[in-house]
Amino acid sequence: MAKRVESAVAAACPGCAAAQEGRALFCAQCGRIQPPPGCDYFTVFGLRPHLNLDAAALEREFHGLSRRLHPDRFIRAGAQEKEWSLADTALVNDAYRTLKDPLRRTEYVLKLSGTWGGPGKEKTPADLLEEVFELNMEVDEARAAKQAGKDERAQRTGLEAARARVAEMVEGLDRELRAQWPAWDAGAEDTRRSAERAMALLVERRRYLSNLVREVDEILGE
């Protein structure tokens, strides 16, 4: 599970008693550290939830927060503040890793909205399963032939061709995903929802196919 740090949302800053909204790591009034807020990853960095994310802004905010959370700054802090600084650091690192990567960012957004992932979601479409199963079978046969010691070179070429084909499909899916980003970023509620549904299908398809690419890579590396 993408661990969300349980927030012990402080109603008020222990330092200056200013009310906290659970959206920031530091008190806006006195700058004192707060427990991990229960907000989404974008808000951790003070960014608007956007798929077409400003990478430079993310980088800047990440480095800024990392500096403020540096252990050197908490050497003389109390036990609780030390603990919060560690928990906040874990949150910032998770958030940064998730948002930095376009695919993870997209998957994260879909999970937040409940469109994808988690139990009780819609079943994988039958035609996608058929296709993935067939591709797996092809690769499996090539693998068996390779292990049976048949013409190694020919098998390798066959596997490489299969890999290239599936990798191309994955790239195509990435392009389709990106094509949905503007609708999600700027769209009205219903446009956003339909973009989410479209992206959920693409992400799911991509999971199966990228697994397949990894499998082929493993066989080729053997």
Partner: peptide
């Protein structure tokens, strides 16, 4: 029966 787990990409027949 052909089923799959989208989270991990496993396929089972």
């Amino acid at each position: 029966g052909l089923v799959g787990a989208p989270e991990c990409g496993d396929v089972m027949r």
